[in-house]
Write a protein that binds this DNA or RNA. Structure first.
Lengths: 193, 193
DNA sequence: GAGTGGTGAGACAGGTCTGTCTCATACATA
DNA sequence: TATGTATGAGACAGACCTGTCTCACCACTC
């Protein structure tokens, strides 16, 4: 019986690394800590990931993919666009309340890898642009493309700002204010179209 | 002749560390790099700062103080509150366009020091709360206190989000959208009062 | 000339980091 | 039994980290 090709251990390392990176940051989390927590040999890790940086990119892409799938399902639901946007804010409210919420891993990655040429930086840009693009698609159901682009960027800012504030203080107030502002902007943009 | 008490060297270390932390992050910037760039002896640095963490706090507090002074001057100007808020966004637009803009140092510090009990975390919370409080004061000139608190939080989110987006992509579009949204929210809150 | 006090230069300790390497083990298949 | 593959365990190299310590230097004073 094959213990499932290879991907078992590989995926386990990715998920363990995710938890550790989220809690302590990227530079502060050593390879030794990751393999100890994942309970794999160091060589097992390095056989799957040529370097720590590539592991970080893998972790980010993995999380981005999970969120993307949620957004894909949302896009196909038969509800009005306002409600779809509201749903995204609801998800964030839930996330902020979760047991070990430590802010946005992508924002943290940007803080530690500020070089635009670095693969980690590029992975962050991919994720944020992806979220913005999906929000824009939703908004295009109710306003022209140019307007939708601008509103999507504003909503993304509110989300990012709320995530940062939620990490520092009362998360409930943060997401409530952000949601209210977002809904106001969306409503105003629909009317003025 | 005393070469000016001691504080000359001390301040020089703080400013050098600021530039390096901003570019490469906190964990990735070593003490050796700081003293080499500042051209001081290692003992000179450790005589002024008992540890790297305390140097980081000092750097953050120094930047917070500079921004606070700007806000103090703004508060005393005889212009309408909307214009004061607009001025804060103008400052950010300038900042985003500056030569070595690398995002918000405080947000980056939060990413690397996520423990709420850590002195660096506390320094970040101080700065962000300070900015929010000052914006609330401005807004209280034109709306009730409770409303002002909520609007100030929303403006802070827009600013933080715009700063993050500006680090990733076109900074001009980011601050323009944020400013437009902020002014809309302020205007709506004044009317509905 | 002898002493004093502040400073720089850099060795050093003890730890941690990433990444490589060897060897043993377990298991499936031929 | 023989072989191939994925893994585990851990030593190891070489670099880097923070923080301490010694020593040389230099200006000034007595």
């Amino acid at each position: 019986m094959t213990p499932s090709p290879v991907s078992d251990k590989r995926q386990h390392v990715v998920e363990t690394a995710y938890v550790l990176f989220k809690r302590a940051g990227f530079h502060a989390t050593g390879i030794d800590r990751i393999i100890a927590e994942a309970d794999v040999a160091k060589m097992t890790m390095y056989r799957h990931f040529p370097s720590k940086d590539e592991l970080i990119v893998e972790v980010l892409d993995y999380r981005a993919m999970r969120f993307d799938r949620q957004l894909d399902r949302l896009a196909q639901e038969g509800i009005p666009p306002e409600q779809k946007i509201g749903r995204i804010f609801d998800w964030h409210a839930l996330w902020f309340r979760s047991a070990d919420f430590h802010g946005c891993l992508f924002a943290h990655a940007l803080a530690e890898f500020g070089d635009p040429g670095h693969p980690v930086f590029k992975a962050v840009v991919r994720q944020k642009n992806g979220l913005k693009r999906r929000m824009r698609s939703i908004l295009e159901e109710m306003m022209p493309r140019g307007r939708a682009e601008s509103v999507a960027a504003t909503l993304l800012m509110l989300i990012e700002g709320a995530t940062l504030l939620a990490q520092m203080g009362p998360a409930d107030a943060a997401i409530r204010d952000a949601r209210k502002a977002a809904m106001g902007i969306v409503a105003a943009s629909r009317k003025s179209q």
